[in-house]
Simulated scan of single mutants.
Amino acid sequence: MKRLGLALAAMALLPGAMPVSDLSLDVAKLRSTRGLIRVCLTADPSNFPKCTDDKRAVTRSVPATRHDISFDGLPRGDYAIAVIHDENGNGKLDTFAGIPKEGFGFSRNPIITFGPPSFKAARFTVSGDTDAQQVKMLYLL
């Protein structure tokens, strides 16, 4: 019995033996089906919401006609999601005088005041075999 316990403990330390989950993201309240939905999923608070220097971040760009996005095989843990509705397909969130002209949203749909929310405000935990998040898009202009 002791050997079985040691064998199970050793297997948990092997690469690829970490429990993983699948995450389903639903993007709600898009104002149009033009352009792309761009998603950044990160576990690194210092790279939220842009994911620019996070090699482990998962990014997706899908047509705005789709509102469901899947992430398979994620290690369990804490994450945050940032979404933009890139209506003109130029690869960035367009602004006017610092105010977003295109839609944006974050996991857990935190209240937005000035600037993006903190990682903590958007953080959620992936802990089961399958998890789901819904991001409601906001449009200011």
Rank of each mutant, 00 (worst) to 15 (best):
Met1Gln: 11
Met1Ile: 08
Lys2Ser: 08
Leu4Phe: 14
Gly5Glu: 08
Leu6Asp: 13
Leu8Gln: 09
Ala9Gln: 07
Ala9Asp: 05
Met11Gly: 08
Leu13Gln: 00
Leu14Ile: 05
Pro15Ser: 07
Gly16Ile: 01
Met18Leu: 09
Pro19Trp: 12
Val20Asp: 00
Asp22Ser: 05
Ser24Gln: 12
Ser24Glu: 06
Leu25Arg: 08
Asp26Gly: 07
Asp26Val: 03
Val27Ala: 07
Val27Asn: 01
Ala28Gly: 02
Leu30Ala: 14
Arg31Thr: 07
Arg31Glu: 04
Thr33Ala: 13
Thr33Val: 13
Arg34Asn: 15
Gly35Tyr: 14
Leu36Met: 13
Ile37Trp: 01
Arg38Pro: 03
Arg38Trp: 00
Val39Asp: 04
Cys40Phe: 06
Cys40Ala: 15
Leu41His: 05
Thr42Asp: 06
Thr42Glu: 05
Ala43Asp: 09
Ala43Leu: 03
Pro45Leu: 12
Phe48Val: 06
Lys50Ser: 10
Cys51Phe: 01
Cys51Lys: 07
Asp53Tyr: 14
Lys55Thr: 09
Arg56Gln: 15
Ala57Thr: 02
Val58Ser: 11
Val58Arg: 11
Val58His: 13
Val58Ala: 08
Ala64Met: 03
Thr65Trp: 12
Thr65Gly: 12
Asp68Asn: 13
Ile69Lys: 00
Ser70His: 15
Phe71Ser: 12
Phe71Arg: 09
Tyr79Gln: 02
Tyr79His: 05
Ile81Ala: 02
Ala82Glu: 00
Ala82Thr: 01
His85Ser: 06
Asp86Leu: 01
Glu87Pro: 00
Asn88Cys: 10
Lys92Asp: 12
Asp94Thr: 05
Asp94Ser: 08
Thr95Pro: 02
Thr95Ser: 12
Phe96His: 15
Phe96Glu: 09
Phe96Ala: 11
Ala97Lys: 14
Lys101Arg: 14
Glu102Phe: 11
Gly103Glu: 01
Gly105Pro: 01
Phe106Ile: 01
Phe106Tyr: 15
Phe106Asp: 00
Ser107Pro: 03
Arg108Ile: 00
Pro110Leu: 09
Pro110Gly: 07
Ile111Ser: 08
Pro117His: 11
Pro117Tyr: 06
Pro117Trp: 06
Lys120Asp: 11
Ala121Gln: 15
Ala121Lys: 14
Ala121Glu: 11
Ala122Thr: 09
Arg123Trp: 09
Arg123Asn: 02
Phe124Asp: 03
Phe124Arg: 00
Phe124Leu: 08
Thr125Gln: 15
Asp129Phe: 08
Thr130Cys: 08
Thr130Ala: 13
Asp131His: 04
Asp131Met: 06
Ala132Val: 10
Gln133Asn: 07
Gln134Phe: 08
Tyr139Asn: 01
